[in-house]
C-alpha cells in the first residue's frame, strides 16, 4: 500500500479509536451479559447458582471486607496511567458515603479472577452489593456522577 495512504488510515484509526474510548471509558455498565457467559463456562458453580443473575466475588478468598452497603473493587496494575486518579476518586467517595468501602487488587496477583471476570484493562472497577454480587462494571477512569448514581441504585 502507498505509505501516504497508510498514514491517513493510521491517523484516522487512532483518532476514531481515541474518540470511542473517550466516549465509552469510565461508564458504569450493567454486567449481566458477560456474566452469563462466565456462568455457562463454570459448570460446578452454575448448577447451584442457575437462578442467580449476578456473579459473585468471594471476599474471603481475596482477603477483603465488603462494605455493609456496597464495595467499589478496583483492579489495578503496575503500568497503569489512570489507576491513581481512579483510586483517589473512589477513596474519597467511599469516605463520604457511609457503608461504602473501597478495595483495590493487583490484577497480576489475581490473574485467575481477572481471566474469569474477563478483565482486559486496568483500571476495571466492579460495584459489589453487600453480598458481593457484581452489579456494575466500569473500565477506565470512572465518571464520578455515574458511580454516585450507581451506588444510589445499589444501596
Amino acid at each position: 500500500m502507498n505509505s501516504l495512504w497508510l498514514l491517513v488510515v493510521v491517523v484516522s484509526v487512532a483518532i476514531g479509536f481515541g474518540l470511542w474510548r473517550k466516549w465509552s471509558d469510565g461508564r458504569m455498565r450493567d454486567d449481566s451479559t458477560s456474566l452469563e457467559i462466565i456462568a455457562s463456562r463454570l459448570p460446578a458453580e452454575s448448577t447451584d447458582g442457575v437462578e442467580q443473575e449476578q456473579l459473585k466475588v468471594d471476599p474471603t478468598d481475596l482477603g477483603l471486607t465488603l462494605g455493609p452497603r456496597a464495595t467499589l473493587l478496583q483492579f489495578s496494575s503496575a503500568f497503569c496511567q489512570p489507576c491513581r486518579s481512579a483510586r483517589l476518586l473512589l477513596t474519597s467517595l467511599a469516605e463520604d458515603l457511609p457503608g461504602v468501602t473501597f478495595a483495590e487488587l493487583d490484577a497480576e496477583d489475581h490473574i485467575d479472577l481477572v481471566r474469569s471476570l474477563q478483565i482486559r484493562r486496568t483500571p476495571t472497577i466492579l460495584l459489589l452489593d453487600s453480598s458481593g454480587n457484581i452489579r456494575k462494571r466500569a473500565v477506565g477512569l470512572p465518571r464520578k456522577s455515574e458511580v454516585v448514581a450507581a451506588l444510589a441504585n445499589v444501596v
Binding site: I15, F17, S77, F79, C80, Q81, R120
Partner: peptide
C-alpha cells in the same frame, strides 16, 4: 498519537494482556 492527543497509554494496556 493516542498518547499525544488523548493522553491514552496504549502500551500500558499491553502489560495486563
Amino acid at each position: 498519537l493516542l498518547n499525544a492527543v488523548f493522553n491514552y497509554c496504549l502500551g500500558c494496556e499491553m502489560y495486563l494482556l
